[in-house]
Design a protein around this nucleic acid. Structure first.
Lengths: 217, 217
DNA sequence: TAATCAATCCAGCAATTATTAGATTATTTA
DNA sequence: TAAATAATCTAATAATTGCTGGATTGATTA
């Protein structure tokens, strides 16, 4: 008979809680979402998450302690990347459950993207079929490096900063579907709005590469 | 253009972190695993998790605050249950990732179930096929109420406390595959050990109903 | 109605965590 | 070799969390 079951169990749950702890801080979640877009330096992560490099470094230390990220030094910089696709998948699961369960979150998300787009089909398969045929343009408005790391099938890249200058590259007769880092990133919403103002048919996708499951980490 | 993006983002990640926080405490994780087995009273949860009712109540309060559990008063008792299958699924994802990433956890798990059983096929489909044909007996050794709430297909119920007295109900010619609450529960291991000592062919399953995805919440 | 039982609420202490500032390490450039 | 850059480490403080004991609520039983 297994003796001292209590001690063993305490140890096991404590280990799992190490992973849970990582996902209990808003800033760490934001860093994870950024890392879902591809590997990044501490500097970039800090800038994108609007925190100091010191604080970013401290949070990344936690991520590393739980073996959820890996690091590699290249020149002056240390590059961080997720330790595997399973980490991105867990992030997607957690924020999906949060969206399921927390009314406050649902309302906040509705506020930032009030109108549901009927310009574009809701299911992924149909959208991809249309993209394959060129019936819609799928537009990745994240920074170029993120596009290069991974992107949705058939997607074109125009970072949101360059969008206003590169409007000529886009067609006016077909819908343009912008996407960015995911539901908590506002770039795609801004891009679609800009495009509509400029006379394009445009909508945005809620999901990013992590939600689509295409992040090849 | 979306103004004050930072404030909006902070709010969104903070909401998701509310869910993450729930999974950051070992005792809360244990309570969630118990609730994956079916609804339970605070008293039962406290006893099974080896904590005081006050502490259990406090942890359950956190779970309720994050809308991950629901409660119902029936007579003197308040019954807690998971707010949906998605909660059980997230628990499975988190502990799976922990087992993937944390060597300490892998080692601790290996220690409690050293020998891999070759008595029983590793893949679920084959096992279920054999169970359907009666080539193995799938034995649920959890308390009866948990069996009644959900159980694996074709499973029989003999709670571990009653096992020694009810050995006559089991066949000696076919393998008996015991399972319990999951990888952090030791009942199935103990049961298989007891059965082997008594001359049965026996093995244990690592996974419980949550891991099999059959928890119908 | 009083007594009992299950569970929660509240207050307080100890332990942990988030954040910031200052000093330190490793690498590259001048 | 010195200066500059990217990142970490250490120490300190404020805020949060985990847990315990005492009082309280709500329902049942005597």
């Amino acid at each position: 008979m297994m003796k001292d079951a209590r001690k063993i169990k305490d140890l096991l749950y404590e280990q799992v809680a190490r992973i849970g702890k990582v996902f209990s801080s808003p800033k760490r979640l934001e860093l994870i979402e950024l890392l879902c877009q591809g590997e990044k330096t501490v500097e970039t992560l800090a800038r994108e998450a609007s925190i100091s490099m010191k604080l970013a470094s401290a949070h990344l230390r936690e991520l590393r302690g739980a073996h959820l990220v890996e690091t590699e030094r290249r020149g002056k910089n240390i590059h961080y990347r997720l330790a595997g696709k399973a980490v991105a998948d867990l992030w997607v699961h957690i924020h999906s459950l949060a969206e399921d369960r927390l009314i406050e979150l649902q309302m906040a998300l509705q506020k930032i993207a009030a109108q549901p787009d009927d310009l574009v089909p809701n299911d992924r398969e149909t959208l991809m079929k249309m993209a394959r045929r060129g019936e819609v343009v799928v537009l990745d408005v994240r920074p170029t490096e993120e596009y290069l790391a991974t992107h949705l099938p058939f997607a074109r890249s125009i970072p949101i900063d360059e969008l206003r200058l590169r409007l000529a590259e886009l067609p006016k007769d077909r819908p343009i579907v912008a996407y960015c880092r995911g539901p908590y990133c506002l770039m795609a919403i801004d891009a679609a709005e800009l495009l509509r103002k400029e006379g394009f048919k445009s909508a945005h996708l809620r999901d990013g590469v992590a939600e689509w499951g295409v992040a090849d980490i």
